[in-house]
């Protein structure tokens, strides 16, 4: 444990009292041959230790790109961070040289991915891929690294960890593979864990087990967890706060109870209304009409205006709605948030 602390102290400007993770006005664009695709257009959020922040949104709204930008693993080119800050304990990670940045990955901020089968290297054993972390970041010997890897597999509740350490990813079931991913992410005791749709590729019973495991490990370690998902059901169970993203912007940020009870942005409201509910059996399911905008041609004004029931002329013109403070710790990017909440 001491060596982890030592590594943190190396980061210049580190302030233990600063927020654990703070993302300010993050902009990411992809420069492709078809034009510039603006994937993230001003993402803001903060994360405290022990807190679970869910980033919610449809496919292509910029959730995963935000996560990759925080990790610093964007494919560049074509991806470029054009503006903003990603502060870990007061240190702007975007300004760090690559070598320093690399130390932050897995040590302070770790990430797990959606599809563990493709996210794990098919030709190396699970043990090798786990031990690699200890050997590269901690300079451990093969034997020690292996011992630690077995402990980790035990912690994520993989049965017969000692025997399975020599197995390849394809020899595990989907749920067990995701546990391996989690073990890998937690290997170096990070303070922030980003989970990018960790349960999407799994069936429902396994989903619940994995989310339960994540919640348990988070509590043990007092980790900040960013949970990226489009599954409102998963969010309601585990998240403390929710950031709803649309077309690369956080359109509403609120505590989980507030947002489920009284959403303050028409998009968040529409998302909630589109959840199938047992008491609405036999009725037409609410859907959000239209498609999310192409990121190469985001509408003027509020990006959601073409699909919005509340849209007025002011929504169709630049500038886009600012971030209104609905309540302390609660924001909405809608000119008419009072109407939305009031209903």
């Amino acid at each position: 444990m001491t060596d982890i602390k030592a590594k943190i102290d190396v980061l210049p400007g580190l302030d233990p009292r600063a927020p654990l993770l703070e993302v300010n006005d993050l902009h990411v664009e992809f420069r492709t041959q078809y034009g510039i695709s603006r994937a993230v257009n001003g993402a803001n959020f903060t994360l405290s230790p022990g807190e679970t922040l869910a980033i919610l949104g449809e496919s292509g709204c910029g959730k995963s790109v935000t996560a990759q930008a925080i990790m610093g693993i964007l494919d560049s080119p074509p991806g470029f961070i054009t503006k903003g800050e990603v502060k870990y304990r007061g240190v702007d990670l975007l300004k760090l040289p690559e070598k320093e940045r690399r130390k932050v990955r897995a040590n302070q901020i770790a990430m797990i991915f959606q599809d563990a089968l493709s996210a794990l290297n098919p030709v190396f054993t699970v043990g090798y891929q786990l031990a690699e972390l200890f050997r590269v970041h901690r300079g451990m010997s093969r034997g020690d690294a292996k011992k630690r890897s077995i402990e980790l597999l035990d912690q994520v509740k993989i049965p017969a960890a000692r025997a399975r350490i020599g197995d390849y990813p394809h020899q595990f079931s989907g749920g067990m593979r995701q546990r391996v991913m989690i073990a890998m992410a937690l290997a170096l005791d990070p303070e922030v864990l980003i989970a990018d749709e960790p349960t999407t590729a799994l069936d429902v019973t396994v989903q619940a087990q994995i989310m339960g495991l994540l919640a348990e490990l988070q509590q043990q370690r007092n980790m900040g967890l960013i949970l990226i998902t489009h599954d409102m059901g998963v969010v309601a169970d585990v998240a403390d706060r929710i950031s709803v993203m649309y077309a690369g912007k956080v359109v509403e940020e609120a505590g989980v109870y507030d947002i489920y009870a009284r959403p303050a942005h028409p998009y968040a409201k529409a998302l909630l209304e589109s959840i199938p509910r047992l008491d609405m059996k036999g009725q037409q399911l609410n859907v959000i009409k239209g498609l999310p905008p192409a990121l190469t041609a985001i509408p003027q004004g509020c990006a959601f205006n073409p699909r919005c029931a509340y849209a007025q002329d002011v929504c169709r013109q630049d500038p886009a709605p600012p971030s209104y403070i609905v309540a302390p710790g609660r924001t909405s990017r809608c000119h008419f948030w009072r109407d939305v909440v009031g209903e």
Binding site: I73, V104, A119, V136
Partner: peptide, 9 residues
């Protein structure tokens, strides 16, 4: 898996 490897620092 390359993305994962990079995320591992």
């Amino acid at each position: 898996y390359v993305r994962t490897a990079r995320a591992k620092g």
